[in-house]
Design a protein around this nucleic acid. Structure first.
Lengths: 145, 145
DNA sequence: TTGCTTGCAAATGATTTGCACTGCT
DNA sequence: AGCAGTGCAAATCATTTGCAAGCAA
């Protein structure tokens, strides 16, 4: 997806949520789109020095609420943020237990659909209605090996 | 596993970690073993009024460190704690997006091994060494439907 | 003008830690 | 005696929020 298309989609989705697509929010989206991994707040601020911390948090809250951005929590440190799957593609996370780095991975469609079927069954067995799943594969990255 | 066996295993594991199995730690393990779902700290304190908050946190830290207890983080509120899989069985989590409740679910062995194979491939493609995985199935529970 | 957004500084709240005391070993 | 564990209260730190100023509709 081109940068134009991306901002267009995000703008549309924000309007649906009765929110404006302001310069600050656009800047946050641009930083996340440029990154190849989910970013923490300090990383976002470092990538665009013009952003104020509280405004970045507020922009992210709006974007998360509108379903444009996803918030990942893996411990007690900073949360990681990334563009929602509708804007990129369905994927999961490789989490390094050494340094906390998070990397996106995709799985074969065959595996995904087999998992989905299995998850739905498991959920309904407990009276849940499953809507989505997220998988964290923990291990060590090249650096921490 | 009987309560005796459980405490015996936990004691052994703590000794390996050069830690004592004190009354407080035993109490925390007993509360977690009695629960059928992962518990938050307030829930643990409510289940055993004799525990002090800071001591409960400290006991949990030791138990997590020794690999006896697992800590689950799903948002900004309290983390959930449960006995580690070695003491129960390998499972995943059903997370209610409405009230935050977490329930354990198990998946068919066939599905688990298919996933494991797929995860290892995905990890190695990114230079990671995968050691374990955790799956959160999000949706709504009966109450929040 | 009316209301949403922003930035600063201050508040919040889950978790951690300093310290003095208790209890094993 | 010496060291680990405990409980209270205070500290920490990611995140949220109050408020005054800026900006858009």
């Amino acid at each position: 997806m081109s940068a134009d298309d991306l901002h267009h989609s995000v703008g549309a989705r924000l309007r649906e949520a009765e929110q404006q697509y302001t310069a600050n929010r656009r800047a946050v989206v641009a930083v996340l789109a440029a990154a190849r991994t989910p970013l923490t707040l300090p990383e976002i601020l470092r990538a665009d020095r013009s952003l104020a911390q509280s405004s970045a948090y507020r922009s992210l809250a709006v974007l998360v609420d509108a379903g444009v951005v996803h918030r990942l929590v893996h411990g007690n440190d900073y949360a990681h943020y990334e563009l929602a799957e509708q804007l990129t593609q369905h994927h999961h996370h490789l989490v390094c237990d050494g340094c906390g780095t998070v990397v996106d991975v995709t799985l074969p469609t065959r595996v995904e659909s087999a998992m989905d079927r299995s998850f739905e069954q498991a959920a309904s067995r407990h009276g849940f209605t499953a809507s989505r799943h997220s998988i964290d594969i923990h291990g060590l990255c090249t650096e921490c090996r």
